[in-house]
Design a protein around this nucleic acid. Structure first.
Lengths: 226, 226
DNA sequence: ATTCAGTATTTTATCGATATTATCGCGGCA
DNA sequence: TGCCGCGATAATATCGATAAAATACTGAAT
């Protein structure tokens, strides 16, 4: 593979990075099912790359709790369970509460503008039903927390976000976002955040998660998921 | 390398696992200095193994925030800074507070016995000045939190513990544990935990961390490190 | 039928080699 | 003198092959 081929590849960066992003997509979106054995050779063919990048990408994904590594017995996609889902929800609420409050405490105009922009981009994608909505939705939520200036906390939140969204995909993408006025919830969080009202912002944010959580928890309980 | 050689190796498990453990030791103990470039070939010779296990171990360590991976530019040991240290301390307090309270809320006799045992082993190692004290010290703290039944939270706490202990090593192992009656602090935490007094236990645990934290923060501020 | 041992097959883990990329140093030029 | 680009060097990333381990399979004995 020479330089020119590289450029025309679907994504830039090293083969490992591409494999990492692609595999994460596949797991989060549920194309690789929970508990499924991730055979190197199969993935090698599927992603059209060597075994080394695959192995390294899978190693990286173990840190995101999306892949489990069993010594000498390869990799498998992380299992899902109601307990796991509830743990993620609880942790998310605790960590994002803290991050959002610190973010607001460190208020700057630059941050406010970033958040407003992220919200607008998300809204636009939502209205146009563009397929990058999920990406921008995450970007909005991360933007809210970014001003906490706490890289580790932010990374934890990002990981938990991905773990959570995986359950949304498993439950069926269409189901959840029709039921409520999610736009209003987002707008409410944004408004409270830029008004520097940490209590209200946090309450709305956590409510936003808990509503989705209760909905998904119901599905999980009724055995809809794997 | 055949089967018999494997068994006589310093540690068991795959080459990747051995490299992972060894590299983590080296970084936490400060033998690999913060910010130091981690050249594959150098480590390959130092640990007497191939490049693949080294790369994979370094990938795993990035998830522990002990190694930074820069695409196409290799790996380096994570930097240290006062800001980073304070972030770790703050997060640790928040997460361990939650974990400890849940652990106590889920009280069982089996858990109580585990904690008592872990405490005793740590104490014995401390009295005999054995070199596995650090390992047993971590085991005691993790045992306190284990009953929260929250694997992700526990893993976060474990990672933060390692990140924190790294600063202790960098500051010089001897310095901190002479100043206070750490034995009494541990005993106090244990007593409150098995008395199921979550408020007291958490207060003592957090104080335990904050005392060490203030001490190290002082050293950091005076430019003793990095 | 069931269990067990031994064998065949699949899969993982690891090595050695190569291609690609970054880095360093030197000489020419403003 | 200082800076830019080019070539040499070093390091990374990746591949293909092999060794080691686990899994699946077969058939005999109970």
């Amino acid at each position: 593979m020479n330089r020119l081929d590289r450029v025309t590849d679907t994504a830039e960066g090293s083969a490992t990075n591409r494999a990492y992003r692609r595999l994460r997509e596949l797991i989060v979106a549920g194309d690789l099912k929970p508990g499924e054995k991730l055979k190197i050779d199969g993935l090698r063919k599927r992603l059209d790359t060597g075994a080394s990048p695959i192995r390294e990408a899978l190693s990286l994904l173990t840190s995101d709790h999306l892949v489990e590594r069993i010594d000498q017995r390869g990799f498998r996609a992380a299992e899902v369970s109601a307990a796991n889902f509830n743990e993620i929800l609880k942790l998310r609420c605790a960590l994002e509460d803290q991050a959002l409050r610190e973010s607001i405490a460190n208020y700057t105009e630059a941050w406010e503008e970033h958040v407003v922009l992220a919200h607008h981009r998300m809204l636009r994608a939502q209205n146009e039903k563009r397929d990058d909505f999920e990406l921008l939705h995450k970007a909005f939520h991360m933007a809210l927390l970014a001003n906490a200036n706490s890289p580790i906390l932010l990374k934890f939140c990002s990981q938990l976000y991905d773990l959570n969204i995986r359950y949304r995909f498993l439950a069926g993408r269409a189901l959840d976002y029709q039921q409520r006025d999610v736009r209003a919830e987002h707008a409410g969080i944004l408004a409270a955040a830029i008004a520097r009202d940490a209590d209200t912002a946090s309450e709305r944010l956590l409510n936003h998660y808990k509503l989705t959580g209760a909905f998904l928890s119901g599905l999980l309980g009724s055995g809809t998921l794997g």
